[in-house]
Write a protein that binds this DNA or RNA. Structure first.
Lengths: 291, 291
DNA sequence: CGCAAAATAGAATAAAAATTCCTCTTGCTT
DNA sequence: AAGCAAGAGGAATTTTTATTCTATTTTGCG
């Protein structure tokens, strides 16, 4: 993307157009396009339509590819950009890229912003804390919906459906999830077995797993060894494993048949289990509905 | 983005790496990254982490900007790409762009589809169920914020702050909440005692409560007798009680010093614990922040 | 119908990008 | 501790890309 003046383009948006102020975001540009559409020339209209219809294309592809796709010349795209007050096509392209970047603030950034908010303001009252947590949980739930692949859900449900007994393992912070799953699975009439390590008997409990069963394992950083061991044990015994963890670098990734990555809300080093709970619930209900 | 051999890159994905098959999408790449993470060199790990954390950045920015942002040399990014079987960085970058192109094209469209699914109610697939639960949970969280009185929160925190030991009781569906509270309270250094009725010893467990302690009790319809009894026992012993339940007609109302009414998300007769969890978390963090 | 002004296409150009390659460092083995 | 190999850094190189410029076509108007 030549003609870019500043390398650290990330947050900056310095220049203005020669004649008029160029639209600063895609929404603004779209408005401008519709307003001026009747006055545009034939080729420019063609480009305008394409821009409205394929904003991602504009953001991602190079000018040559876009031109070919839209059936115009590269120079026409530049004329288009200049007609709307931009310095060149790259300048226009930047606002489309911005849109993509903002649309998925990668969650971690969203939470970071929230964390700053939390620290920034002096209000540490319980009410404020509750609100912050609720917001973080909502963000986490939205993220869950966006990121969870339908195929993974299907495969997980299928594994659970085939299982004679569903073993559950989770420790410490994640333990409530296993407890919930145990309750919910029992309620829909599935045989569940909670590996709770009571009396230090997790070795004995995990030895009950058989290949026609399944294991649901949950662990978040910093990955309770006992849970990881249980997963390894299951994998070795050819027991299908559905994993729930926080990120791809988790030790679960390699050894599970299906893995869900959940970025639960975290504030003050306290992770919530809202999104995890939601996923667990969805799995159980989907299992109950189909199986 | 030089070194791109075919202009019509849009839908095509022709080449494979020289040695091994390169991951064809980001999920696959993430998997590969986690598998090989331990064997990667220091700088390559640094890049791997950055890639997992900022996928948008990789898709949109140029190699120079990404390198600067990740604190590495441009050539390191290329080494990274080649290490995972790509021809060069551009080759790797394409799969990140693909992800953006596929995921984002219709955020509004997707929500609309979701709503239709929801109302059409013909779709009982796992994905639809997950979405439904997520939406229900979000609604519940919003409701929680709106309905929870600031004064109640303050009083509850105050009760917990004064308590020498915080006893916790919840059974069956609500048990995960007690388990979570136990973990969280322990983490902030408060002495917690989980009345889990293990071995049928709840009588003995509850007899440990003293007036300078506090009890947090959770129970929803249909109000597990064991929990209600424990609350009654505490009230009789002048132990302060914080109750979490579902509605004012609950047996907890009369005997608690503070009661929270939570309308958790419910679909298909399955109540979620998202809102309850959120409240629990807020209470603990507020306690940790002030006390 | 023809002239002028604007718009377009396509080659030429200059900028910037990705990649290569060589040198230096770092970590590990013997 | 010294040598060796893999890794990292950075300048040089090459490819690609955006842009500019001009010849050509189209369009609008007298």
């Amino acid at each position: 993307m030549p003609r870019r003046k500043n390398l650290t383009s990330a947050g900056t948006r310095p220049r203005r157009a020669a004649t008029a102020a160029a639209p600063a975001d895609v929404m603004e540009l779209n408005r401008e396009i519709s307003t001026r559409y009747p006055t545009l020339s034939k080729r420019l209209r063609q480009i305008a339509e394409f821009a409205l219809k394929h904003p991602n294309e504009i953001a991602i592809e190079s000018i040559a590819v876009i031109a070919q796709h839209a059936g115009v010349q590269p120079s026409a795209l530049i004329r288009f950009a200049k007609a709307f007050g931009y310095e060149g096509f790259s300048d226009l392209q930047r606002i489309f890229q911005q849109r993509l970047r903002e649309s998925r603030p990668s969650y971690a950034e969203r939470i970071a912003a929230m964390r700053e908010e939390l620290h920034g303001q002096r209000d540490h009252g319980p009410q404020a804390i509750l609100t912050r947590f609720a917001e973080a949980n909502i963000a986490a739930l939205q993220h869950l919906c966006e990121e969870t692949k339908s195929g993974d859900l299907d495969r997980a449900v299928q594994i659970l459906r085939k299982a004679e007994t569903i073993h559950l393992v989770a420790q410490r912070r994640s333990f409530p999830l296993a407890a919930y799953l145990y309750y919910a699975l029992s309620k829909i009439g599935r045989r569940a077995h909670l590996i709770d390590a009571i009396g230090g008997m997790d070795q004995e409990q995990r030895s009950l797993m058989a290949p026609h069963d399944a294991l649901v394992a949950v662990t978040y950083a910093d990955y309770t060894p006992r849970v990881v061991e249980t997963v390894a044990f299951a994998a070795q015994r050819k027991v299908p494993v559905v994993g729930i963890t926080d990120q791809p670098l988790s030790p679960l990734t390699a050894q599970c048949d299906v893995v869900f990555y959940i970025e639960d809300a975290a504030v003050h080093d306290f992770r919530s289990l809202g999104a995890s709970m939601c996923l667990a619930q969805a799995l159980v209900v989907a299992l109950g509905a189909t199986g």
